[in-house]
Design a protein around this nucleic acid. Structure first.
Ligand SMILES: [Mn+2]
Ligand SMILES: [Mn+2]
Ligand SMILES: [Mn+2]
Ligand SMILES: [Mn+2]
Lengths: 217, 217
DNA sequence: TAATATAATTAGGCTAATCTAATTAAATAT
DNA sequence: ATATTTAATTAGATTAGCCTAATTATATTA
């Protein structure tokens, strides 16, 4: 139906719209797609023809309703396959992204819904990212960055904004795991270092960079 | 590493070599790939450069050792994913081929071996086709076509040579299932019709066309 | 062996997705 | 308001994988 490339552009535009507002710039898209700007201009013209995006020369791009549906579908696929890889095949959370990048494009009558059922209708992927339902509804997350909490605040670690293996491995090594109850014991004024108290575990100290990649609710 | 197209050519060449002898003709390949002959000539030149096939102008093509390894790997992927779709997601045997055609190309460190383990190291796919082991060894099947049996012969239904949904549905409807013990009660001389006795079930009569697509051992 | 039929290759072109270099449009600073 | 910087587009090429039409090579038949 759509090429892998088109699907990847749609996903990228969707995510950029989520974080940076409705209109997405050619340069931003080029950045995340890892291609040069003229390639993006080209692609947007083709996708506009197919009514997947609204595009006006030099005015940026937005997804159409159709484009949005495809994008959310791909995200649903991606996250469900990640759950499969971790829960059923025993991979670690830092190993699954690249495989899910391929699996998300597999087409099949009812495939993703059967997978969903097989996995027990999970609400989130191994990184805490919410899984859109079969109708394409993605629950609006009300998590906040750990870096926005004050000393004394408490919450549950529900997700990450940095999905790199390096960061995920750091969390594993440090003993911070998804679902943990975390209390901000203190914030060092001088360098914005966070001293965290993990339920039942020893205290850990993390940098602002780390606190700024952890989602809490 | 290799494109989907290359992998599909390798698989096609492998299967043609199995059934039609070592050297594969351009036209045969064009036929099964669903493309025209000049496209095949083009592709074979590129694949020869990559040492995936041995190709000499107008002399046909054979797989190199490297090409053979890739081909068997793809077949292993395909058959294991088919088992997954049937055993874990509950699809019927006539529904899984097209999805497996996509899944067979997914690359991942150790993915297929983990899938194999998760599935309990199956020996055959839902159609009875043997699954190559992790080293690429594909057990030589000693099945024979039902159409080669004589009246009075008995055997077990172990596979099909026609993988179309139409044929598989016909078997389901007729009540002939993989693993069934089957006795050839009689063969009608006039039109080569086979009268089969299914263990514990009623007798069924099938055409030569059907008997010629059923593997027994 | 020569004529014919079939199979394969070459020649030339197309599309999707990319690139670099040059140009134009938009945003920012003077 | 102009000049300058930055962002985006156009122009022109490239590669993989496909096509049709024309040509050549191989196989078959007379
Ligand atoms: Mn991911
Ligand atoms: Mn994820
Ligand atoms: Mn199959
Ligand atoms: Mn099969």
């Amino acid at each position: 139906m759509h090429s892998f490339t088109e699907e990847n552009y749609l996903k990228a535009i969707y995510k950029l719209q989520e974080t940076n507002g409705e209109v997405v710039a050619t340069s931003a898209l080029a950045q995340v797609m890892g291609v040069h700007a003229p390639s993006v201009t080209d692609m947007l013209k083709r996708m506009a023809q197919k009514k997947l995006v609204g595009y006006q020369k030099s005015k940026g791009v937005k997804l159409t309703e159709k484009g949005k549906q495809v994008a959310v579908g791909i995200i649903r696929n991606h996250r469900l396959w990640e759950v499969f890889l971790v829960d059923k095949l025993g991979y670690r959370w830092d190993e699954v992204h690249d495989m899910a990048e391929q699996l998300e494009h597999i087409q099949g009558e009812d495939l993703v819904n059967r997978l969903d059922k097989f996995l027990g209708f999970p609400k989130a992927d191994p990184h805490g990212d919410p899984i859109p339902d079969a109708k394409g509804v993605l629950p609006k997350s009300k998590s906040v960055l750990l870096s926005t909490l004050k000393a004394g605040d408490t919450g549950t670690f529900t997700g990450v904004t940095d999905h790199t293996a390096a960061f995920l491995n750091y969390l594993d090594k440090t003993g911070i795991a998804l679902g943990d109850s975390i209390k901000v014991k203190a914030i060092e004024e001088y360098d914005q270092t966070y001293i965290l108290q993990l339920k039942g575990k020893k205290d850990v100290t993390v940098s602002f960079k780390v606190a700024n990649s952890i989602l809490m609710s």
